[in-house]
Design a protein around this nucleic acid. Sequence first.
DNA 1: ATCCCGAGGG
DNA 2: CCCTCTGGAT
Length: 216
Amino acid sequence: MRLTKKRKAQEILSILKTLYPDATCSLDYQTPVQLLVATILSAQCTDERVNKVTPNLFARFPDAPSLAHAHREEVETLIRSTGFFRNKAKNIQGTCLKIVKEFNGEVPQTMKELLTLPGVARKTANVVLAHAFGIIEGVTVDTHVKRLSNRLGLTKNSQPIQIEKDLMKLLPQPEWENFSISIIYHGRAVCNARKPQCDMCQLIHLCSDYKKNQKK
DNA sequence: ATCCCGAGGG
DNA sequence: CCCTCTGGAT
């Protein structure tokens, strides 16, 4: 192997940073609770669509107590277009109720506590910790991070938790969330699921999938 | 492994 | 019609 996998990962990150210097969390929010809710809504849904429903949702129910005690049907109606709206409404209200009752109205700031909230697993927890509190606990692995990490050859695993462990070994801890954010931008703009734009891609010299397809 | 679920693109 | 979108719980 000419390039160690670690070296390759950092090279990828370096290029992505130059391509997307202003990459940030694309969800709109004002408070940690709102970021948490927006992130729950982002499951299997574009952030663009989430940002279309959250202004109305947060205007009506701006905080954890109001969301926790809202009528389920009204919450469902407000978030309907994001899909999975029954599960998401139940999880948002369950999470907000737990925040009010067990966490003194504040979003908890540890992975362990966040994972006790309904509808919150490592992906959502990593996003909230990083962007609401500046705590880099792990690598956010969503559908884009999963797809690109596999295509680029940074992991051979398909389960998000295993992919996260692999990426944590390959990248310096302070860069974990920067990697996720910028690779998500690249996944949306260039390396999309259906038809990756390899002719536009700045990473093809580092891409296992591109090399494999060249051989055939 | 399967279910939840709407909207947009091809 | 089929696939995909910053997943999580059963």
